[in-house]
């Protein structure tokens, strides 16, 4: 299969590096501002839930961090597949950059879920609960991916082998998402993607969506900064990198 021409631009490290430099101030600035606005709104101004009370304020960070973890995995799997099929080094660099971010945010989702579960279900953790188990598996897929990379001295070999793990593991993503519908779980079904529209009032929905946007922008800031570092590491002896570093840019 032949790739479209615009795709080749995204395979060019100098182009992507400079594009990241242009995008990051916007992603970081807007992401940071929305995180602050959403957190204050969710904690102080959104109403408490009529059943769960104040603990429901965790809804402004828990689903969002869980979604970032899943998005990071999808980014990692798609980039891995592109890197594997078309031998595009930059795609592998994207996959490597997404993995640690995904691991951190999945851990964050598990933690915020546990402290929400205690007042709501009466337990922090339930072994065998499908949503919790598959979300934990997601964390282990990220950690396994990162550990497997460490087993190789040769970066190209590490890229290709871990790409297979990333692509195979992507089956876990729909399982995580639908686990609350396919099986009995302590976990509630999706509030935002509920049948017949979001199952929350507008004064909760607005800060909820602000936080979705905030975490998404933050994720792409993190991804692009890590990608830039990965590009410099991989293309270290290229002239444009030496010129860039010689300028004392960072």
């Amino acid at each position: 299969m032949k790739l479209p021409r615009w795709f080749h631009q995204f395979g060019s490290p100098p182009y992507v590096y400079r594009l990241a430099d242009r995008l990051c101030p916007w992603l970081g600035g807007l992401g940071g501002a929305l995180l602050a606005v959403g957190a204050v709104w969710g904690l102080a101004f959104a109403p408490p839930d009529y059943q769960q009370g104040e603990s429901a304020r965790i809804i402004y960070i828990h689903p969002q961090t869980a979604y970032i973890g899943m998005m990071a995995y999808v980014v990692m799997a798609v980039a891995s597949a592109i890197g594997y099929v078309w031998r595009l080094k930059l795609a592998h660099a994207v996959a490597v950059s997404a993995a640690p971010i995904g691991a951190w945010f999945t851990f964050c989702a598990l933690f915020t879920g546990a402290v929400w579960g205690r007042p709501t279900w009466g337990t922090y953790w339930q072994w065998g609960d499908p949503r919790i188990m598959f979300e934990a598996l997601l964390l282990f897929l990220f950690l396994g991916y990162l550990a497997l990379r460490e087993a190789f001295d040769d970066r190209d070999k590490a890229d290709r082998v871990t790409a297979i793990l990333a692509v195979v593991g992507v089956v876990n993503i729909p399982i995580v998402h639908y686990s609350v519908e396919w099986w009995n779980s302590l976990h509630q079904t999706s509030t935002l993607l509920a049948e017949g529209g979001p199952a929350m009032t507008t004064d909760m929905l607005i800060p909820f969506l602000i936080m979705v946007a905030a975490f998404t922008l933050t994720f792409y800031w993190l991804l692009l900064r890590r990608l830039q570092a990965e590009i410099v590491e991989r293309e270290g002896d290229a002239r444009w990198i030496r010129e860039l570093v010689g300028e004392g840019a960072r």
Binding site: E54, S55, R57, I58, I61, F111, V115, P119
Partner: peptide
């Protein structure tokens, strides 16, 4: 409302 420890540790 008594949920401070949970909410604040999560945030």
């Amino acid at each position: 409302g008594g949920h401070g420890a949970y909410v604040w540790s999560a945030y």
